[in-house]
């Protein structure tokens, strides 16, 4: 069962929820897009329902809410250190099923990859609740169905935006105290995309032979990719970061430890002491990313990292299509029989 909100009633719900929650959603920044006279849509705190852009895909994913682009872990001065004060508000994010599934991948990496979970991630993540925005059709670059990430049940509330009403499934009973229970009840459970225009065949369940690593197909990306990193920064599942100690200009005995997103496509990602670095050509960076998204993460955790949100395809300035690359890889594996099936 669900609830039928008039637009006004749902606006009121958001106002009431804001007393206890910081609410974030895909928001339009007019005229602040990359090109002149274009808009930017990215996640940010919203003040009212009107600000939620639910019928377009955001350029950037909601990952920056749970995994900030820049995060100060602690401040240090002489021998002492201090962790930043935590905002105690709970966080509510309006997002699509693919992104909810994407955040589950971020959880896996930060909380279940190795013996030590990431406490900085954990303390932010545990404050987060999801409002799933129903997504029945997706967009022209989406391939969530192929990646099996079109469906989720991990949300406190699911909503369908209509012209002047909002249908909602409320799974978290705590939410019912924020709206009138006299609202009309309706049969509503959210639907999910059943088919995307883009279909991706993922090489599944097999061991990829070394031949694939050196295959000629990656060479094309040596010249096509410009290593800008947009596929990484817009990806909901890219979770690499780099940690730096910053010493303040005015007093070098004080500073902070900070972590910042890092991108496997961008120069410097593999820099090591002694001036050593790996994957210097952009073709091998493409190979590294693609195989991580649809091969080695799966080997370790039993599902693919990529959720098929298609943001990498939307944002590549060189029109490199990652989804086309996966299909090509599958074809190469089939043709060369380079994939040895493991039962």
């Amino acid at each position: 069962m669900g609830w039928k909100f008039t637009e006004a009633a749902f606006k009121d719900l958001i106002v009431k929820l804001k007393a206890d929650y910081t609410i974030l959603g895909p928001k339009r920044f007019v005229g602040q897009g990359r090109f002149s006279d274009t808009d930017l849509i990215r996640y940010d705190e919203i003040e009212s329902l009107d600000e939620i852009v639910w019928n377009e895909k955001s350029t950037f994913s909601p990952k920056e809410v749970v995994f900030p682009i820049t995060q100060t872990l602690f401040y240090f001065i002489e021998e002492k250190f201090l962790e930043p004060k935590l905002d105690e508000n709970k966080i509510l994010i309006f997002l699509r099923p693919c992104d909810i599934n994407g955040i589950r991948r971020l959880d896996t990496i930060h909380l279940r990859n190795g013996p030590q979970s990431d406490s900085y991630y954990a303390q932010l993540r545990e404050r987060v609740r999801f409002v799933m925005m129903e997504c029945m059709e997706g967009f022209d670059t989406c391939f969530c169905v192929s990646m099996k990430s079109n469906i989720t049940s991990d949300y406190d509330m699911a909503v369908r935006f209509g012209d002047d009403e909002v249908l909602a499934e409320v799974k978290n009973d705590d939410f019912t105290r924020y709206f009138s229970l006299d609202l009309p009840r309706v049969e509503f459970t959210p639907g999910f995309v059943q088919e995307n225009t883009i279909k991706v065949t993922v090489p599944d369940g097999g061991e990829i032979s070394a031949g694939i690593y050196n295959h000629d197909m990656w060479n094309e990306y040596k010249s096509r990719c410009i290593a800008c990193g947009r596929c990484n920064t817009t990806c909901i599942t890219c979770s690499c970061h780099t940690t730096t100690d910053i010493f303040y200009d005015d007093n070098m005995r004080a500073g902070e430890r900070r972590r910042t997103w890092a991108c496997c496509h961008v120069d410097g990602f593999t820099d090591m002491a002694g001036g050593i670095s790996f994957r210097k050509d952009n073709g091998s960076r493409m190979r590294f990313k693609v195989l991580h998204k649809i091969y080695d993460y799966n080997k370790r955790f039993g599902e693919h990292m990529c959720v098929g949100c298609g943001r990498c395809d939307d944002n590549c300035p060189e029109y490199i299509s990652y989804s086309s690359c996966i299909n090509r890889l599958s074809q190469v594996i089939q043709e060369t029989d380079a994939c040895v099936k493991i039962p």
Binding site: P68, I69, T70, C228, G229, T233, T260, W261, A262, C263, V266, D267, G268
Partner: peptide, 8 residues
Amino acid sequence: QRCIGCEA
């Protein structure tokens, strides 16, 4: 806060 220091 949004800068990752990629130097592009």
